[in-house]
Design a binder for these strands. Sequence first.
DNA 1: CCAAATGAGTGTAATGCATACACTTAATAA
DNA 2: TTATTAAGTGTATGCATTACACTCATTTGG
Lengths: 247, 247
Amino acid sequence: MHYTHLVFYIFERIHFEVFWIIMNRTYKQIQQITLAVDCIIFGFDTNKLEVLLVHRGFEPEKDRWSLMGGFVGNNEDLDKAANRVLCDLSGLENVYMEQVRTFGKANRDPYERVVSTTYSALILKKDYRAELISEYRAEWFSINNLPDLIFDHKDMIVSAIQRLRRRVRTVPIGFNLLPEKFTLPQLQKLYEGILGEQIDKRNFRKKLRTMDFLIRLDEKDKSQSKKGAFLYRFDEKEYNKAKSFNI
Amino acid sequence: MHYTHLVFYIFERIHFEVFWIIMNRTYKQIQQITLAVDCIIFGFDTNKLEVLLVHRGFEPEKDRWSLMGGFVGNNEDLDKAANRVLCDLSGLENVYMEQVRTFGKANRDPYERVVSTTYSALILKKDYRAELISEYRAEWFSINNLPDLIFDHKDMIVSAIQRLRRRVRTVPIGFNLLPEKFTLPQLQKLYEGILGEQIDKRNFRKKLRTMDFLIRLDEKDKSQSKKGAFLYRFDEKEYNKAKSFNI
DNA sequence: CCAAATGAGTGTAATGCATACACTTAATAA
DNA sequence: TTATTAAGTGTATGCATTACACTCATTTGG
């Protein structure tokens, strides 16, 4: 075969292949999109609400902070993806996360089109193994003092905080953060930390007194005061009988 | 340049381009997913809440009903996609829809992997041009009497109803469904229809009396009774001053 | 023209819930 | 014994929610 023919043949192949590939990609581009999950992990220790962020040590957006995020696999439940990503990036397992909302502006990620569904959880900081923090360059930040975040991650955190505060008042998720036996001052500090506001002790306790699923034990915890504070436990069965929860 | 060099140059280019494109596609195929939006359109005329569904005249799932759904384009905002799909399938334009939640179980659609974000709106049935109903085989169904729906569309409707009922109590979305001038009996019927429960007339009006953005006019509507009912209007500016809304 | 019918409009009492607010108690350590 | 520390308790007030029944204005038909 003459070189000239070969060159034309090659050009034709290129034309055909590129046409096919481009068409195929174009068609797929209409309908297939990279789908991500981003996890907003709220952490609480004794008084403040913080959020776990990871440091980007690479370009693009080097040295900024981001939520723990990753892509959704093709045969993976969205909920499962959120848990996998969280585990991959933090070692946290069996964390109950709830979907917050989906962020889908075409240009929210300026590098490529990614639609991201956010999930949120509330955990105790001490349950997070400290060694993983350095490994993944993750850090806790007070929700009142967030660093510079990539993309729309700040909006994601804000909407997750709103949801958390609404939810913590109507569902007893706060009790999951306390040990089996806890004191009322502990519980109050928890709510104050999450809601970001002070609560009157007497009014708070008055409301709790109406909740039959809070059982006072005959033990006291003396670690915080000389007098000691009565320990309580959360009774699951009683709670299921109750219709409402509201703090 | 000699042909030989050109050929090798071309081969090199092909190698590079194809490698890049293949890698890129492979990378994308792992992570790209068909993303859909489904619209839950609640319609109200005078007393009942209904939802707009389309009949599937084709396999698979022929003769079952579904929400109005479609795929999200690659350069299309998620919110915009919802509006486009709604318009394509119903002719409804400028409908303000809000995101409800995203359904992402791997097998929710047994035919292919599709993640779907739901959007919901509340409109007046009469604003929907009737001729489009037959064209698209769409029909209104009472929310208490839904037909057999494909996939998880029933769950989608249920979660949208919950959200709508929560929202209609805290944001004055109901007023959008009424004409400029409306009567209090009309307003009450609207709320009763959406909430699915009876409301005491005196208590309802007592609450409305505290809302400064409801302005009573010096006109009456006599179409519903011999006595006639006073017309009111919703004052946007006064509402913006107000901090709260709660019915 | 009077009676019946229809839907519009109004008020009060009781109860529960949210808020504001200050002192006493138990225990320990100095 | 006294000082310190945090735990624990009650009341009064206002505001919102609920339950509840009659009068009013107008039209229609006898």
